[in-house]
């Protein structure tokens, strides 16, 4: 009986499964919604390279930067959900829709979350004007002297995580928007602004060069790759349980069997030595989630940032 049901289910799915099995039979476009040279671009290119080996079909990277990754993401949402157009993106896929209220697509239904490529905690770094070396000291200093939190732009993940930290730590601080993460950090070095939060890949090069100070990783536990940096919960700042990531997406309404296939091929790509080296270089660890777990996390973040945007009155217009 059980077998019969299974056989019937299998029969029903067979056409879709066949489509997934045949995939890919022509070149694939991987959209990177950022300009070249950044950490997401490098991870995206490495993924394209490894998937090309696995699939035996060219995987062409197309940089379509702009509007906080929304131009590339919008292009993805308009593509056929056949797996031949894919996208890598960061939590910007959840933060940007929280401030851009006239997007030409619905981020929850018009894109399909396929899997998490890599993840790392968010890290706060401090500039030349900050005296504190521990997070507890920093909180005390920030309560005495209102600080400037530098962002990589309105609606970026640095903006939202900084708002979250300010809220959870009960600080009285000013947000200053810069044109990019590099711009924000050079202003930290010059002492013009005080704190910047981003993923480890964006801040660790400057931390290692001694240009900015690693202050804290946001979350309840220390990060396995950087055990010397405190976690925010250690100084009593709770309620921040969010990590940065790079994820793989497809257009909305993809066949679940195809999503599963791409997800497992992606994990095979992540297991290669060359990809492991790229991940280690960027201080990130490979994602382990299934497509469903990743989808749940992305949707949870979309709701979280939307709520925060309203609470902290971030939304323009």
């Amino acid at each position: 009986m059980k077998m019969l049901t299974a056989a019937m289910v299998a029969l029903g799915l067979s056409s879709a499964a066949a489509a997934a099995q045949d995939f890919p039979s022509k070149p694939i476009t991987l959209i990177v919604p950022y300009s070249g040279g950044g950490s997401t671009d490098l991870i995206g290119r490495q993924l394209a390279h490894e998937l090309q080996q696995i699939w035996g079909q060219p995987v062409v990277v197309e940089n379509r930067a702009g509007a906080g990754s929304m131009i590339g993401t919008a292009a993805l949402s308009q593509a056929e959900p056949d797996g031949y157009t894919l996208l890598v993106n960061t939590p910007a896929v959840a933060t940007a829709p929280a401030v851009q209220n006239d997007l030409p697509f619905d981020p929850k239904t018009d894109i399909t979350a396929i899997g998490m490529v890599a993840t790392s905690p968010y890290m706060a770094v401090a500039g030349a004007a900050v005296n504190a070396t521990t997070f507890a000291d920093f909180i005390a200093e920030a309560k005495e002297r209102p600080m400037f939190f530098a962002t990589a732009g309105v609606g970026t993940s640095s903006h939202f995580t900084e708002e979250l930290l300010i809220q959870q730590a009960g600080l009285d601080a000013d947000i200053v928007h810069f044109s990019s993460g590099g711009d924000a950090q050079v202003n930290l070095m010059g002492g013009h602004a005080d704190v910047y939060i981003s993923n480890t890949a964006s801040v660790m090069p400057y931390v290692n060069n001694g240009q900015v100070k690693a202050l804290v990783v946001l979350g309840s536990e220390r990060y396995e790759l950087l055990p010397d940096v405190e976690a925010s919960a250690e100084a009593g700042v709770d309620g921040i349980d969010i990590n940065s990531w790079v994820g793989l997406f497809g257009p909305g309404g993809m066949d679940p069997a195809l999503v599963e296939k791409i997800n497992s091929d992606m994990h095979a790509a992540l297991a290669t030595d060359s990809f492991k080296k790229v991940l280690a270089d960027n201080f990130v660890i490979a994602g382990k989630d299934s497509a469903d777990e990743f989808k749940a996390q992305v949707e949870k973040e979309m709701d979280l940032w939307k709520t925060l945007a309203t609470e902290r009155s971030i939304v323009a217009n």
Partner: peptide
């Protein structure tokens, strides 16, 4: 600024830094 601070002044310079990052070199004061 590109080589001694690791700060790209333009999108083109970001690509130059990217070319070094590919090889695990992070430009900076050192």
């Amino acid at each position: 600024p590109t080589l001694s601070l690791g700060i790209p002044g333009s999108a083109t310079m970001a690509l130059m830094i990217g070319a070094l990052m590919v090889h695990g070199i992070h430009p900076g004061p050192k």
